[in-house]
Each structure stands twice: as structure tokens, then as C-alpha cells.
Design a protein around this nucleic acid. Structure first.
Lengths: 152, 152
DNA sequence: GGCCAAGTGTTGACATATCAACAGTCTACT
DNA sequence: AGTAGACTGTTGATATGTCAACACTTGGCC
């Protein structure tokens, strides 16, 4: 029993999408200008970087929450440009960050950090930032729980 | 001066994207199953519906936060399928919801409402829902203010 | 060995988004 | 009138994402 009237969930949904899109567009504009790579590409590079430089393709897809196909196509393009390398290993493929990819990360992570603060955190109060963090944690954990029990 | 350490904004950014994606995927799966139209298409239909059934193409693009080109291509496909109609009016084009589009709206809005509650609101407490609303409002208003002053 | 099922990744056809260039239509100014 | 500039929308080339079908490997089982 919530405090929302009819149609309010839909309204909230639309506003949430819009807020996310606005922030996202602003952040991406900066990171793309700084790095020359698109948001999905940067996502792959960051993910590899945070995992120590290499990751199974399967794990990469799971971490990003992507389809195998999408990742495969994107990695093909990124490998062509020298950002990553693919090596066959037992039971899968290992994706590794190449020097060019590392360079992009080094150039872009500071920009991403700044842009996130500017377009997301600084537009909220410090307390709101904590609140947002808590909300996100709750959503993530509950979604994961739902996925495990097959509710999603 | 926030309470976050180095890299934490980036971390928050990644988690936010992921949480949004998880919820979005779950909601879209239901609405698409119920309506047969994709999320962007449904967005257009909802927007028209909330505006009384018709809207200038320009206003539609602004409301959705989209590029003109993207909307133009999408409307062409939707008009081909009979969801909307385009009429030339002084200084622009008016987009109108057609019967088929109305039918989709009627079938899908309840699903969207339910899915949003299920995958977003019910995973937060009632208080969190209010908090989320407040956060979204703040982001939207501050982004709009930034856009007006050219800060974005 | 031979077989089947699950897991992993690729491929090609198709849908959709993005980008740059174009065309039309107002408005203001001379 | 005539022209320049802003606004609105379209078009076609290209990039990216999605879907279904295929190949390859692994492990269990008879």
C-alpha cells in the first residue's frame, strides 16, 4: 500500500528516464570529447581496467549486463582499433586491455569522475548523494535477488 | 566539498547506470510483451496521449529529449504501421495519435503502471519512493536551469 | 567410443540510432 | 522586393544494437 495515486508510477517512470537521460547525455558529451570513444566502448575499457586489465568475455558481458552478441560485435570493432585483444583460453575467450586502451582510460577516468560530480553529485546536496547511493544499492541487491529466484 | 573519496563518483556512476538498466530491462520486457511496440515507440505514444492526442513534432522531440533526426525516422516507421499520422501545419508538423496507437496505449498503460510499481517502487520502501521522487525533481530542475544558462 | 545437453562465442540479416548535408518556411532587416 | 539567418523537418550514409541460427567446446551418461 503506497502513497501514490493512479498513474503516478508511470509519471515517476517517465521522469526517472528523463533525468537519467539528461545526466547521461551531459556526462557522455564530456567523456567522448576527452577520449574519442563512445560510451559503450568506455564502459568496456573501464570494466577491464577495474578487473586488473583482462577478463573473460563471458564475465565482461555479465558485469556490463549485456547480450553476448552485442559485446562480440563491439569487441570486434574495438580490437580492430587496437583497444583490446582477444585470446582463446580453455573454455572461452579472454579480453585484454591493450596500450591504446590503457591510454584512453588514463586520459578519461579523471574526466569521468569530474563530469559525474558536476552533472550528478553537485546537483544534489551531499545528503542527497548518500541517499542516492542507498537507493541504488537497494535496487541492485533486490534486482539481483529477484534474478536468483527467477522472479525477474 | 563532498564526502566522497577519489574514484567514488565514477563508482556511483557505474552503479547508477547498472541499476537503471536492470529496472528498465524488466519494465520494458513487460510492456513490449503487452503491446508489441518497442520502448521508444511507446514513449512517443505515451507522450502524445498525455498531451491530449497530438503535438508538434518539435515539441515532441523536446519533451522526449531526443534528436530531431531520430524522431523523424521513428515517426516514419510508426506512421507506416498506422500508429500516428503527420499533418503539415503552419511552421511545422503536427503528429496525431491514430486509433491503432490509442489501442496500444489503452492496452499498455496499465501494464506500465504495474511493472513500474513491481520493478521500481516495490523494491524501495514507501519513504524511499518519496525520496527518489525528490531526487529526480532536483536533477530535472537543475539540469533545466543549467541548460538555460548554457552551463550544460 | 558415441551421444546429448549446456555453455560460450561468432556470424549475417535486420532494426534502430547517429551524423552531416540538404530543403522549406518563417522573420527581420535593408 | 530581396536577402540573410534562425527554425523545422527530411534524407542518405554510416555506426551500432538486436535477433535467430550456427559452430565449437565441455562434461555427463549409456
Amino acid at each position: 500500500m503506497s502513497t501514490l495515486g493512479p498513474g503516478e508510477a508511470t509519471e515517476l517512470w517517465l521522469r526517472w528516464k528523463r533525468a537519467h537521460e539528461l545526466v547521461r547525455a551531459a556526462v557522455i558529451a564530456e567523456t567522448t570529447a576527452a577520449s574519442g570513444v563512445s560510451e559503450p566502448e568506455l564502459g568496456v575499457l573501464v570494466c577491464l581496467h577495474e578487473s586488473g586489465g583482462s577478463l573473460r568475455q563471458n564475465a565482461l558481458a555479465a558485469t556490463l549486463g549485456w547480450d553476448r552478441t552485442r559485446l562480440s560485435h563491439l569487441l570486434t570493432r574495438m580490437a580492430d582499433r587496437g583497444y583490446v585483444a582477444r585470446d582463446k583460453v580453455p573454455n572461452g575467450v579472454e579480453v585484454t586491455l591493450c596500450p591504446a586502451g590503457r591510454r584512453v582510460i588514463d586520459m578519461t577516468l579523471p574526466t569521468l569522475e569530474t563530469a559525474t560530480r558536476c552533472h550528478l553529485l553537485d546537483r544534489l546536496g551531499p545528503d542527497d548523494a548518500k541517499t542516492l547511493k542507498a537507493l541504488i544499492d537497494r535496487l541492485l541487491s533486490s534486482e539481483e535477488a529477484a534474478a536468483e529466484t527467477g522472479t525477474g
